[in-house]
Design a binder for these strands. Structure first.
Lengths: 193, 193
DNA sequence: CCCGTTTGTCTACAATTGTAGAATAAGAAT
DNA sequence: ATTCTTATTCTACAATTGTAGACAAACGGG
């Protein structure tokens, strides 16, 4: 019972997490409606039926992907605790994570790309409210902290949308430092109140 | 040949624009993938085939919807020309147009809700770049006007996403004046440079 | 060595999708 | 009134979707 995993080709937990990882990529790339179960399963090297075997349904898989993402490190709030110049640190983080390359901020990409599906939207809303929104609001002080937290999320989401999804040129090939400078100004105002 | 339209039930141009209007609503509600041709046609009181007859394909219809929207009044730039306090006027306009009720800013809602489809995304990108982006950048002066214009679009898009699509509570039931105040601060910095 | 459980695939189905072609009906022209 | 044009619908098809059930194969314990 304690065989330490001797290169077995039939590993349930490995398959499960392979599907989860593939789904995360696929959802980030194409959104809920755009990613097919066969495509997701193919990316994990298995058949489409495995999705239903391990997760019950595509919708449940989507929910678990979001749970995994929001269970991970809180990227926004981590930047907010760096006391004096939290605005600049946050700006740098956001600009780099919304750059052309790999999207690490898929907690936003996935919900935004899935906005054509009401059910997917609902699932994402719950997670965002319970995690990002609550965390950011908790890191702020003063009056209107909740509104300001929401605005920070909105700015991040908008930047993400415009840089990685719509890909408007002025933001895609913008100067990194200039972008950081402008964003730091925005965040500074929202953090201070 | 000059019958002035005596309540005829078979009017080509009327049907065409009925489909266009229904498509605009449907796309704003469900995005490109979420809105079916039968649903769109039904909203116009006709059969699904009329879509292909009048527009060739669903994709072409989508493009024409966006053309109609971006051919209309430039809402953002109109606010930007009000010289001294353009920031506040813009903030008010944006907050009101992203309120819970009717979405008048569908030039953003539709592309954002259609982000699961690569082709729809591409079509929207062209329009946004050629219209909004160019207009806003033209209304700004000083260095980095292009980046700042892009950021204004990003902020508007993010607010729209979070208030009308994801519907996070902190922004949905936020105090209007407080929201305007914060946004005016953001826009002020972006307009001035 | 063999049996039972787990892990996986195969075939298939019902629904929905966008779209095509033929058939119909309504209006205008003669 | 009859023909011609044009707007509209009907039927249908091929593809894709998520999902279900039966079957096959690999593993582990006896």
């Amino acid at each position: 019972m304690l065989t330490p995993a001797p290169t077995r080709s039939r590993d349930a937990t490995a398959t499960r997490s392979a599907i989860l990882a593939s789904a995360r990529e696929a959802f980030a790339r194409s959104g809920y409606d755009g990613a097919g179960v066969r495509e997701i399963a193919g990316g994990a090297g298995v058949t489409a039926m495995m999705v239903n075997r391990y997760f019950g349904s595509k919708e449940a898989l989507y929910a678990e992907v979001l749970d995994q993402i929001f269970g991970g490190p809180r990227i926004l709030t981590e930047a907010l605790i760096h006391a004096p110049d939290a605005a600049r640190i946050l700006a740098e983080a956001v600009v780099d994570m919304t750059a052309a390359g790999a999207p690490q901020l898929d907690g936003f990409v996935i919900p935004l790309r899935s906005a054509s599906n009401p059910r997917a939207l609902e699932i994402a809303r719950d997670r965002i409210e319970a995690n990002h929104q609550a965390d950011v609001a908790g890191a702020l002080t003063g009056p209107g902290a909740r509104e300001r937290a929401g605005l920070i999320l909105a700015v991040v989401a908008g930047l993400q949308s415009m840089r990685q999804t719509v890909e408007i040129s002025s933001l895609v090939d913008a100067d990194r430092d200039e972008l950081i400078r402008q964003l730091a100004g925005i965040f500074s105002g929202l953090i201070a109140g």
